[in-house]
Computed example of a mutant assay.
Amino acid sequence: MKKFVLALLTLSTFNVLAAADETVNIYSFRQSFLIDPILEKFTAETGIKTKVVFAKKGLIERIKREGKYSPADVVLTSNFSKLLQLQDEGLTSEIVSEEIEKNVPAHFRDDNGQWIALTKRVRNIYASKDRVADAKALTYEALAAPEFKGKVCTRSGKHPYNLGLIASMIAHKGEAEAQTWLQGVKANLARKPQGNDRGQVKAIKEGLCDVSLGNSYYYGKMLENAEQKPWADAVNIVYPNQNDRGAHINVSGAVITKYAPNKANALKLLTFLSSVKAQQTYASLNMEYPVNPQVKPSATVLSWGDFKEDALSLTKVAEYREAALKLVDKVKFDL
């Protein structure tokens, strides 16, 4: 009888473990409409089921509270800042995969394998079609030029998108020159930093300013929105610094968690997300640039034209994120 009970317990344990092996648990900052179609393809191709917890904030704090008992295998982030926070908090494990290395260029992977990028977005300048001549020649540096006095709009300098740009300026120019530039941009602001990227384009349409900073994919989203299309129609989308280092790139990405209970499946998921098939879906659903160089952007995004991107490693940019935050406070950019 004891042997029979032991056999049943062993079989039950095996079944539980087998079920766990066919699952990957995801904590996602990325919205369901974007990742669900991709995850469905992943399950269809691999047989591995996905369980997703979505939240705009609080997921990193949740993983910390859960500790080694956290069910999270993978975290999908909507920006580079969250990737760095996960790494800095010691919540990641090394991603080792030759296939991922083929799919994701080195400057879009952590040097120590703690995170990978999955999509790219440009930190563009949006310029009024009616009031800004020769917009294609614009640079980030030009936002601090006297000609744009009282004509610049932007969201908070502490937002991850702007912090990444400021960090890249420090990396390229040094902290002293970056500070001078940021002070110049502040002096040119038409209003106190506020709102989101689309709100800045609306302000250009309304004549409150002539130029603004904004991520590339918002342009496509505005074109598809009946209310916001007039905002997009009022501006040119500009890829800055095309005659020198190129336009600054920010990313969404992913990590495998430190205590992931299904690490093998987590690695399979990240491999799939960086594959041609998944990258094509990313490109079509959210008008982002695929990180996999084998995949072209969507037809809409391609219509905006080719551009040169800043090839500076994101690991290098990350080194200056803290300095960028201090610089925003030092020049009182948001005040």
Rank of each mutant, 00 (worst) to 15 (best):
S216K: 04
E141H: 13
D210A: 00
D36V: 01
T154A: 15
N188W: 05
D130Y: 03
Q194R: 13
V276E: 14
V291M: 08
P193Q: 03
K41Q: 13
V291Q: 15
S212D: 11
Q228C: 00
M169A: 09
T77M: 13
D244E: 12
A106M: 14
A117P: 13
Q183C: 02
S81M: 07
R121M: 03
R30F: 03
S128M: 03
L118F: 07
L9T: 06
I256G: 15
I237Q: 15
L91C: 08
A135G: 08
A278P: 14
L143H: 10
W304A: 02
V75Q: 13
T315R: 11
F4I: 15
Y289M: 11
K49V: 00
L273C: 05
L39V: 05
D134L: 03
K129S: 05
P146Y: 00
A72V: 06
L86A: 05
Q31W: 06
V301Q: 11
T119R: 03
D310Y: 00
E99M: 09
D334T: 09
F14N: 12
F54H: 15
D306V: 03
I38Y: 01
K68E: 07
G246R: 05
R121D: 05
G305H: 08
Y218C: 12
K205A: 06
P146F: 01
A226F: 01
F4W: 04
A72Y: 07
L325T: 12
I116Y: 04
E147V: 08
R121F: 03
K186D: 09
K263P: 15
F272R: 12
P290H: 02
V96E: 14
K202A: 10
T281A: 01
Q85G: 11
S128N: 03
K41R: 13
Q179K: 15
N188T: 10
G58D: 02
K64L: 05
A127I: 06
V317R: 14
A187M: 11
N188D: 10
D210F: 01
N15D: 13
Y69V: 04
E22W: 04
V132L: 04
A106C: 10
K82S: 15
A260P: 15
E101S: 07
G305T: 05
V132A: 04
S81F: 04
E101F: 00
E99V: 07
D306K: 15
G90Q: 10
D111K: 13
N15K: 01
D36R: 01
